[in-house]
Design a protein around this nucleic acid. Structure first.
Lengths: 174, 174
DNA sequence: ACCTGAACACCGTTCAAGT
DNA sequence: ACCTGAACACCGTTCAAGT
């Protein structure tokens, strides 16, 4: 495997998945866009889902360093930033939810991603003097609200209102 | 169109969609299960998405009367009941989220469904002395948490904890 | 009006063959 | 090891034809 070519194929896949969605991006189209034969993709990736998992990891690796920059900001700002960033990857978010039913690797990736996000939130919430189990529950709620914001049309105002309400809640309840 | 046959086709579609998912249920398989030619389905329904919309409405019509029975219970019990019921329709829930990107009728159905649910919640929350706009925000949060619970594996305990926390929040914040 | 068998263009994936 | 063109089984949908 030529790593550079592999990276190029991934980049093309990422672009097309984001632009036309997973179902809207056929392997044939993808191959054409990358100027290779369709089956060449199968030399580099086991199947379409494996390609998706790599695209997800790729995207995450690009976002995480930037997220670190916001780690010291108040939780509200962090959440709003996260929604903005993940919003660009909307297509990927819903695809993960759909595909995880039929693809164990994607289900695994999804679980791992949630664990990561929740760990982040748990730390922040626990720092406010909430006990561990409670923090886990609230972190989960936070993740769910985040996903809800991604999956549904929302004005920027609504978005801010919801995130603000959520953060108030996290600050109040214990 | 024979209404009885139409109803039978819908019932078969519903069963298969719930059992094998939308993508896992091909029109050919569906037709075979209903003992008709594949294209007969297109006499009764415009396309596969139209079939899905009807299945969704069907399911909703069966659930709503039962929901009404729980309307006087405390919000917490209502939410837990809803999660249980919608959990059986999990496959449909994720399908709606995926298909709405490419199918305007499904996007419309989804918007309408959310409006319905949120109206329900707004009423209950406003009854606790929360002002209207605030109630709308919290209702949305409630819907998002509900969807999160559906889309992610959760022990019954986790589920209860999250719903309880959410309801406490709704009671506290104003 | 209602239904069919056969076809269409497409999908993800694999195979036999080439370098 | 890497890549190809051609094929396979399947998909949603449509067409021409039958009753």
């Amino acid at each position: 495997v030529y790593p550079k070519k592999r990276a190029r194929l991934l980049a093309v896949a990422r672009r097309l998945f984001l632009k036309h969605g997973y179902d809207g991006t056929s392997m044939t189209r993808l191959a054409a866009a990358a100027k290779v034969a369709p089956n060449t993709l199968y030399w580099y990736f086991a199947d379409k889902d494996a390609l998706l998992v790599e695209v997800l990891n790729d995207t995450l690796l690009q976002v995480m360093p930037k997220y670190a920059e916001h780690a010291s900001e108040p939780l509200e700002a962090q959440l709003l930033w996260l929604v903005d960033v993940l919003d660009e990857a909307r297509q990927l978010v819903v695809t993960v939810h759909t595909r995880e039913a039929s693809s164990p690797p994607i289900a695994q990736w999804h679980a791992q991603f949630h664990a990561f996000l929740e760990a982040q939130f748990v730390a922040q919430i626990a720092a406010r003097g909430v006990d561990a189990e409670r923090a886990r529950t609230l972190a989960r709620m936070t993740t769910f609200v985040l996903e809800g914001l991604l999956g549904h049309p929302c004005t920027a105002d609504d978005r801010t209102r919801i995130v603000t309400a959520l953060v108030q809640v996290l600050a109040t309840v214990r």
